[in-house]
């Protein structure tokens, strides 16, 4: 075969090839040649209508530039969550990945400890269960953990909505798992669910308090406070004292007050919760 570089398809052959009227011999020749020859390629470019190619390019650029939505995002959209809500929830996932690992780690440890009949497993569960959501929330929003906090604040998207959606997603992902592990604990079955009350109280403190203070700081206070309470209860009586009816009423009370404060701020801010 002759060296392809020494033969150029002439204009007529190219034209016939482009219009589809060239015979098979010419077509084979042109195709094999054009693949390697820049000059003939640009000649072909002048023969092909530009508009359809331009349209395809626009689509290519869009495909290439637009960020690929993660699994969580697509899942949320499929169940009907709006675009900004889905974005706000799924973008927190990267922040929360470390937290999620922590949750699985702690709960996994509790399961293993229980199976191996370690003594203080119940104490561990009592300490960890309400704090896992608190830690998650602290890692989910706020100027200390979210670099885009100020920019998001300045958009029409309500910060309150962002906080509540992220909190809800944290509860949805961690609570069932915690309840399941709770059922394995050497304690009355109720313990597996009752921890939700102190959790609610703590979350309410952090969420409402974040109107004035950094949520990371508040979460820290809550965590230290609760650990202390469990330890103290264990030393001076039984650790389940932290879940005594009196205490539970206390947590519920805190939660109600904090929610009331939050609502009063929110209702003052906007008449409607729906985002356009």
């Amino acid at each position: 075969m002759t060296d392809a570089a020494s033969w150029h398809a002439d204009g007529d052959a190219l034209r016939r090839w482009v219009s589809g009227t060239a015979g098979s011999m010419t077509s084979i020749s042109v195709e094999q040649h054009v693949q390697r020859c820049a000059d003939c390629r640009s000649a072909v470019a002048t023969l092909v209508p530009a508009a359809p190619l331009e349209q395809v390019w626009d689509n290519v650029l869009a495909d290439v530039e637009m960020p690929r939505l993660g699994v969580v995002h697509r899942l949320l959209r499929t169940v009907g969550v709006g675009p900004s809500d889905a974005l706000v929830i799924s973008s927190a996932v990267t922040l929360r990945f470390a937290w999620l690992c922590g949750v699985i780690g702690v709960l996994g440890f509790a399961v293993v400890a229980q199976l191996l009949a370690f003594d203080h497993v119940l104490g561990l569960f009592l300490v960890a269960a309400p704090l896992l959501p608190v830690a998650g929330v602290a890692a989910a929003y706020g100027p200390s953990v979210d670099p885009m906090y100020e920019l998001v604040q300045v958009t029409p998207y309500l910060m309150v909505r962002l906080v509540l959606l992220r909190t809800a997603s944290i509860l949805v992902t961690s609570a069932p798992l915690t309840v399941a592990v709770g059922l394995l604990m050497p304690a009355p079955t109720a313990v597996a669910i009752i921890w939700l009350l102190p959790a609610a109280g703590f979350l309410a403190i952090v969420l409402t308090g974040s109107i004035w203070y950094d949520p990371l700081y508040l979460a820290g206070v809550v965590i230290v406070g609760w650990i202390t309470a469990v330890i103290v209860a264990a030393r001076f009586g039984h650790q389940l004292a932290v879940l005594a009816p009196g205490a539970l009423a206390g947590y519920a009370g805190i939660a109600i007050v904090a929610v009331a404060v939050l609502l009063s701020r929110v209702i003052g801010s906007t008449p409607s919760w729906r985002l356009r």
């Binding site: 033969w7 002439d10 052959a13 009227t21 010419t26 084979i28 020749s29 040649h33």
Partner: peptide
């Protein structure tokens, strides 16, 4: 089949390019 109107030159050239492959 190729159209009869292709130039002799082209016939020769493509013939050289791909011989009687076509």
């Amino acid at each position: 089949p190729e159209r009869a109107e292709i130039s002799v030159e082209e016939r020769v050239l493509t013939g050289v390019e791909y011989g009687d492959l076509g």
